[in-house]
Nucleic acid binder design. Structure first.
Ligand SMILES: NC(=O)c1ccc[n+]([C@@H]2O[C@H](COP(=O)([O-])OP(=O)(O)OC[C@H]3O[C@@H](n4cnc5c(N)ncnc54)[C@H](O)[C@@H]3O)[C@@H](O)[C@H]2O)c1
Ligand SMILES: NC(=O)c1ccc[n+]([C@@H]2O[C@H](COP(=O)([O-])OP(=O)(O)OC[C@H]3O[C@@H](n4cnc5c(N)ncnc54)[C@H](O)[C@@H]3O)[C@@H](O)[C@H]2O)c1
Lengths: 207, 207
DNA sequence: TTGAATCTGTGATTTAATTAACAATATTTT
DNA sequence: AAAATATTGTTAATTAAATCACAGATTCAA
């Protein structure tokens, strides 16, 4: 079964709302309630849930616990996945600190840099390795995902090394577009573009 | 004329590549060259350029300088737009430092926080104001865009204040979905979702 | 216990975005 | 200067995503 990309994203978002609701003591939720928590419609929610093959007790809404579990079955790997942050500057540190706080199936277990003043330091409990040890550490620690926060001018080169080290997923925060082979999943977040888009729509409102 | 959202994003990306090419002394670029710099096709590039009504000298490729200017006419506001960062913690500081380095039409000119140890401090040349002065400063400095990097549990409340202060564009980095009136443009970047999506596609490759 | 109301699941339709296909035009080659 | 080649601009076709529309299923109200 192959899920639409947007559906995958929304499932991740739904899950957090659902967990929140559980904490508040709720046990069930209607599609229109979940829709309202996101900027979304009830049909969209039902369609997404249909994709993952979950069906609710009619008229009672979705069972929060069950739905969270089904989403987990879809999104999570049994034993979690290991993640490395490459380039532990301002952004890399913020991201590392943020994620290490969360208990989740995604574990940031190593960071890499070339700056000798950073190497061997521990940030939020995660050790910083020299980039030269990338291959070795990635293999030893079974890291499959990298978060790229190196300066723009080394992005391409470091990416080649990551591919070489057999990384399978890459989240790119640098503002240079990267090329990876088709078996590596790449997600890029270009902050400049995002801001420029906001600016465009502020300047030229659409309605 | 109303541009597809994805086209707006790509134009922003193209522009940076074009400027890069200009610096390297090039004067023209073919659609397939530009496509190759992004992960993109020549048709897509031409289609995007068609949307903005620019047409090249046939067979010579696009004139870099002209194309950059046309994209600027579309994306930029004449006098630039003023931006504030709300919540000057790890991420807020990284973003502020990053953007202040760039000369661009988007000027981060104020930051806001509630932590008294941060208020009145200057980060990368930008002063931090108490959130209580939001309305006043936003009006005085004609700030139209906000970057939201406050803790999740204050996101909704702060957003209401931003809307009240008549902010017209909002880039949300918190991982809670926000509700804003239709005349406020909202872009959300949910880092958890992005990473979970990468993890999903690593776990379940699509081909 | 019938009728109205509420909510889900899904086929059909619409809309948005991408890709294919190709005519038009300029350049190069012979 | 005719033929071959390269590149653009655009119409048409395709694909992906979102929305509509409505048939069931269940509950509630009288
Ligand atoms: N800071 C932001 O908010 C922000 C916003 C948008 C984009 N970015 C992008 O994210 C990247 C990092 O931004 P930053 O502000 O953290 O920069 P930074 O300069 O603070 O950090 C970069 C880090 O990467 C390290 N580094 C350099 N070369 C390396 C290499 N070859 N291998 C591994 N590490 C290497 C440096 O030592 C440094 O620690 C940049 O590409 C930037 O364009 C950052
Ligand atoms: N750090 C990351 O990489 C990262 C990643 C994903 C999401 N986020 C989100 O971004 C936000 C900020 O993350 P962070 O790591 O910078 O957190 P942080 O705790 O370092 O910073 C939060 C800042 O907001 C300030 N603040 C608190 N309440 C405020 C209010 N009402 N008004 C203005 N300022 C207020 C705090 O004083 C602090 O300076 C969080 O919502 C987090 O979920 C951060």
């Amino acid at each position: 079964m192959t899920l639409p990309e947007r559906t995958v994203e929304r499932l991740s978002e739904y899950r957090r709302s659902l967990l929140q609701c559980l904490e508040e003591g709720k046990t069930h939720i209607f599609s229109h309630e979940l829709a309202e928590l996101h900027h979304n419609t009830a049909v969209q929610v039902r369609r997404d849930i249909m994709f993952i093959g979950y069906t609710s007790m009619q008229r009672k809404g979705y069972d929060l616990r069950e739905l969270v579990d089904v989403i987990g079955d879809i999104l999570d790997s049994e034993r979690g996945l290991n993640v490395a942050v490459i380039g532990i500057g301002n952004l890399g540190r913020a991201v590392t600190t943020y994620f290490v706080g969360k208990r989740s199936k995604l574990n940031i277990i190593a960071t890499f840099d070339v700056d000798t003043t950073k190497i061997d330091r521990v940030i939020s409990g995660v050790k910083c390795y020299p980039l030269s040890r990338l291959n070795e550490v990635v293999k030893a620690q079974q890291i499959s995902i990298a978060i790229l926060t190196v300066p723009a001018d080394s992005a391409a080169e470091v990416t080649a090394q990551l591919v070489e080290a057999d990384i399978k997923g890459l989240m790119n925060f640098t503002t240079v577009p990267l090329n990876v082979p088709p078996d590596v999943y790449l997600d890029e977040f270009d902050m400049i573009t995002s801001l420029e888009k906001v600016a465009y729509f502020v300047k030229s409102p659409q309605n």
